[in-house]
Design a protein around this nucleic acid. Structure first.
Lengths: 254, 254
DNA sequence: TAGTGGTCTAGACCACGTT
DNA sequence: ACGTGGTCTAGACCACTAT
């Protein structure tokens, strides 16, 4: 009846361990259905909530996902995460040539950019600080979502100084060939140096919905700061990635 | 009595939303105790398991952590994550000067390297492939854990080609001043180029224990490949980081 | 000792997907 | 129609922490 009586471990932990071992050994392959609540109740003589707890462990570890009315299935870790080459993708030749930075990352797959919103606002404290403008100064904000083969993989929000981009195509939904960086270059503020900061955490409920993340899937947050000649910050871009959809790569000399 | 009857949302979701709003608004600050199971049962007229479910949501989001016998507390996100400068830290001047790559990252804090193990083994398929050696060839493996101010923050496993490092200090627990890279340089195989691949996922139960991770904390996996002059791979290092303890930074030119 | 979270039971109704 | 996971109840005992 109690938890510590029989063994040292909680029942649901032991059941979860057993299922996990089955996944790692290949007895349950990607896409396979795991024993369900009723199966586990019968096999281990436990209550429904205990069986659920065991399955919940695997879901929170990202190893399995539940589909209502169907069962709990082993996750396909991972289909084919996008390789994002942090340094080469931002080489000037890319956007200088009018080529979208995102296009060749997608490869053969269909990339859709949706939920595009662009607006002007007054810089609050944190934004003003990183952009290097006065609090209350006009900044333009670009927000959008990237969907690859029907699966949302990233959201991004950019902040740009209003005194540079006001009245230019950067404030339009479509920034034209080469994107924002090509336009900034034409304005004499082409980025010459970048800094990317990478964090990872669990998503908020809203982020999980917008990226359609299953339980047990973290997000990777990349904050890129773009510097023009002279050191002025011309863009700050905060990207929120589905951790399962991306591998970030940086290659550099010693 | 039912879930969909009263509102659209499950009760535990609404309770979790309310608590989350309280955290984000600052009503509950970092380190504060949240209303406990009994409080929520009384306040919302729900059963214990329902109150638990609500608190569980916040814990899995990484916003709160439970302490047995004490309560559920708002997490201190984040104390002071280590800033890991991916590119500068591997500049030749660093390890060339006999300075540990890890030392100045730790700053004032106390860094302990423990659980050090070094052994020789025959390369399996995946390792042979990335190291560029034959399957079955001798490789040396270095495994260790990094503990910062008493908190484990990273584990690391390195693989090195046996034909280069056999019989050298690289196969000892202590590799001496400048570490492995300085020794490789003395052997004529100093790294001149690096590639780092970054992924993020939820930890396994074992990883969570070894890094003492609370629920809702992902790990970041960094796989670094070091290339010597001529392109030969001289080391592959797989690092598993507590996502809450690190910010990775890469700074580079366009 | 009193209160806390951790585990567990044995029921129940629901929305959903597959058959 | 049936089985699935999702939610919920009203109890219970335990180990742990704080007082």
């Amino acid at each position: 009846m109690d938890s510590a009586g029989g063994g040292r471990q909680a029942k649901y932990v032991r059941i979860a361990d057993e299922l996990r071992a089955g996944i790692q050994s290949g007895r349950y392959g990607p896409g396979d259905r795991l024993p369900g609540e009723n199966d586990l109740m019968a096999a281990h003589g436990v209550a429904r909530m205990t069986a659920r707890a065991a399955l919940g462990v695997l879901q929170h570890e990202g190893l399995a996902e539940a589909r209502k009315g169907a069962g709990v299935f082993v996750r396909g870790l991972w289909h084919s995460p996008t390789r994002r080459r942090g340094i080469q993708r931002l080489a000037q030749e890319r956007w200088g040539a009018g080529r979208s930075v995102w296009a060749d990352e997608a490869g053969e797959r269909e990339l859709v950019v949706d939920q595009v919103e662009v607006w002007e606002e007054a810089a609050g404290e944190p934004v003003a600080s990183v952009l290097g403008v006065a609090v209350g100064a006009a900044v333009w904000v670009r927000s959008r979502r990237f969907v690859l083969d029907g699966k949302p993989v990233m959201t991004a929000v950019s902040w740009l100084p209003g005194d540079i981009v006001a009245g230019t195509p950067v404030t339009e939904a479509d920034t034209g060939p080469g994107g924002t960086y090509a336009r900034l270059a034409e304005l004499g503020f082409g980025p010459v140096r970048f800094r990317e900061e990478i964090r990872s955490r669990m998503p908020s409920a809203e982020e999980a919905e917008r990226l359609r993340l299953g339980a047990g899937t973290p997000v990777v947050v990349v904050v890129r700061t773009a510097f023009a000649e002279g050191g002025r910050v011309v863009e700050v871009n905060e990207m929120t990635l589905d951790a399962g959809s991306y591998v970030l790569e940086y290659e550099f000399d010693a």
